[in-house]
Amino acid sequence: MQRRAATDIYGLMAEFRTPEDLIAATHKVKQAGYSRLDAYTPFPIEEVIEEVAPGDTGVPRLVLLAGLIGAASGFIIQYIGNLVDYPLNIGGRPLDIANWPAMIPITFEAMILFAAFTAAISMVVLNGLPMPYHPVFNAPRFDRASQDGFFLCIEARDPLFDRAQTAQFLRSLGPVQVSEVGN
């Protein structure tokens, strides 16, 4: 495959030696106005997450919605089962809506069930997983990101991205190395 035009790379990857370097660099990149960036580290670094997080991921809203649906279905299924279709006298408890306290534990459990599954599944799906190929793995030494390397990538789709200037800017932040990441 022949080499494509300059903008056809995925982005520019800078490797840093320590988390502190990465935190400082991320901060400066953010200040410079870049918005399409991501960091790759062996362990979560809260300050970096704050900077590179895309903001609204949609997961919280989905979880709330699923929790409310779960609670409602948990309650309704008991109401229909125990009070409408198959009323059963258990210890003389009321056979109408006054029986609501007995239904709360299951309502609660159903809410947790729906919310937890939604959280896990929507996290995976909205992250685009499973993803068999991702360009960042083309970066040199990228395997260190799961050991002792701290990487910051400015992506080519960033409006401020300029192959030469951005690379120069990244070099000014004191990285171990800066490299282009092919698509």
Binding site: G91, G92, R93, P101, A102, I104, P105
Partner: peptide
């Protein structure tokens, strides 16, 4: 609060 109530209410 609810745990205490629902146990006592159920036991009656």
């Amino acid at each position: 609060s609810f745990g205490q109530y629902v146990i006592i209410w159920s036991g009656d």
